[in-house]
Simulated assay, not measured.
Amino acid sequence: MEDTHPTAFAGVTPDPAWAFDQYQRLRHQLPRPDYNPGPSQAIPSLEPLQERFDAFVFDAFGVLNTGMAVIPGAVERLASLQASGKSVLVLSNAATASQAALTAKYQAMGFDLAEHQVISSRWLLEDSLGREPRNGLWGVIAPPTSDSQTLPGIHQHPVRPGITDLELDACDGFIFLSSEDWNEVLHEQLTASLKRRPRPLEVANPDLVAPRGDCLTLEPGFFAHRLREDTGVSPQFFGKPYAPAFAAALTRLAGIPAHRILMVGDTLHTDILGARAAGMATLLVSSHGSLAGMDLDSCIRQSGIAPDFITPSI
């Protein structure tokens, strides 16, 4: 199946250096943990930490997989942790697939994971919609799959290529699930509609980019921040680095102190920043994700976001 997430937009072709600079530009919009980061310890893999922590929370893209390709050793590492009695969760900003479909995807990749071990930003959104149904008609930005038509608590209309300005203006709010098929025409249409009548914008995937094979794709967070800057509408974000995502992980790991939980991620401004704000320990994976090829010491120094540990791969 052809991947239709955008790899360029309005003259922007993302690479790790560009993505880092964009996250830095948006730093004032992100959580601000109250901590003084110490020096990060370089380790060859996650193995030296296996007995040091009681639970492990993994980002997916850039840690377990890149696109549909499993990162070598990832399946074995999670199996080893679970065999030794450690609690394992996946905390992902994936927003297109339902909880059942996302779990099935990881299982098909070889990961021995049950639904209760997966927390996605899609699940966080659905949980919010289930508790607080939204009124009116909501435009849902998502691929044309059955999953995108099953959001609870809303009356919805798909926002897809070919939608008219009249249809956009009839929506009372928008939910951004996926950037698949998003393009400059659609973006300008939505920008103009929100300028005509500001309405809520809820974003299930706060990521700016995602690693997919040998490239980075532009994700809903990138477009949402552009909409905020161009229209004045403040998006509501679900997923990392925001507190509800990490609160959900801590709830599922009830009884385990936050400092005994290791968050494993590939992005300083989402995985590491959000976990540090939640009181978790952190491990940055450097070889496969959005920081691949970057000068990590410089990135840490510029951002002030220091993981406890750094490893090339788990």
Rank of each mutant, 00 (worst) to 15 (best):
residue 197 R to C: 03
residue 51 E to V: 03
residue 285 V to S: 14
residue 250 L to K: 14
residue 242 Y to A: 04
residue 109 M to P: 01
residue 231 T to K: 13
residue 217 T to S: 10
residue 218 L to K: 01
residue 170 A to K: 07
residue 168 L to E: 07
residue 8 A to Q: 13
residue 155 H to T: 14
residue 91 L to N: 11
residue 132 E to A: 12
residue 46 L to E: 13
residue 134 R to G: 02
residue 177 L to N: 04
residue 90 V to D: 04
residue 200 P to S: 04
residue 71 I to Q: 00
residue 31 P to G: 12
residue 294 M to G: 02
residue 50 Q to A: 14
residue 49 L to Y: 06
residue 175 I to G: 10
residue 53 F to N: 08
residue 74 A to W: 00
residue 90 V to S: 04
residue 43 I to W: 10
residue 32 R to K: 13
residue 160 R to C: 01
residue 223 F to I: 11
residue 290 S to L: 11
residue 124 L to I: 08
residue 21 D to P: 03
residue 39 P to T: 13
residue 170 A to S: 07
residue 257 P to E: 03
residue 266 D to W: 04
residue 75 V to L: 06
residue 164 T to F: 12
residue 211 P to G: 06
residue 162 G to F: 10
residue 288 H to T: 01
residue 28 H to C: 14
residue 207 D to F: 04
residue 92 S to L: 11
residue 256 I to Y: 05
residue 242 Y to F: 15
residue 157 H to T: 08
residue 91 L to P: 00
residue 232 G to L: 06
residue 114 A to Y: 01
residue 86 K to V: 06
residue 153 G to Q: 00
residue 243 A to F: 00
residue 177 L to E: 09
residue 22 Q to W: 08
residue 286 S to N: 09
residue 30 L to R: 02
residue 15 D to N: 14
residue 67 G to T: 04
residue 99 Q to L: 12
residue 152 P to C: 07
residue 226 R to P: 05
residue 110 G to T: 04
residue 120 S to T: 12
residue 283 L to Q: 08
residue 57 V to I: 06
residue 104 A to E: 10
residue 147 D to L: 08
residue 51 E to T: 14
residue 117 Q to W: 01
residue 67 G to E: 05
residue 90 V to F: 00
residue 28 H to I: 02
residue 107 Q to M: 10
residue 296 L to C: 00
residue 149 Q to I: 03
residue 61 F to L: 12
residue 91 L to Y: 00
residue 228 R to H: 14
residue 8 A to M: 08
residue 294 M to T: 00
residue 180 E to N: 03
residue 28 H to V: 09
residue 132 E to V: 12
residue 282 T to Q: 07
residue 240 K to G: 13
residue 204 A to M: 02
residue 194 L to P: 10
residue 200 P to A: 09
residue 166 L to C: 01
residue 287 S to E: 13
residue 107 Q to F: 11
residue 308 D to K: 09
residue 20 F to R: 05
residue 283 L to V: 05
residue 291 L to R: 07
residue 10 A to S: 08
residue 278 A to G: 05
residue 188 E to M: 12
residue 184 E to R: 15
residue 64 L to V: 07
residue 133 P to A: 08
residue 285 V to N: 11
residue 140 V to E: 09
residue 87 S to R: 15
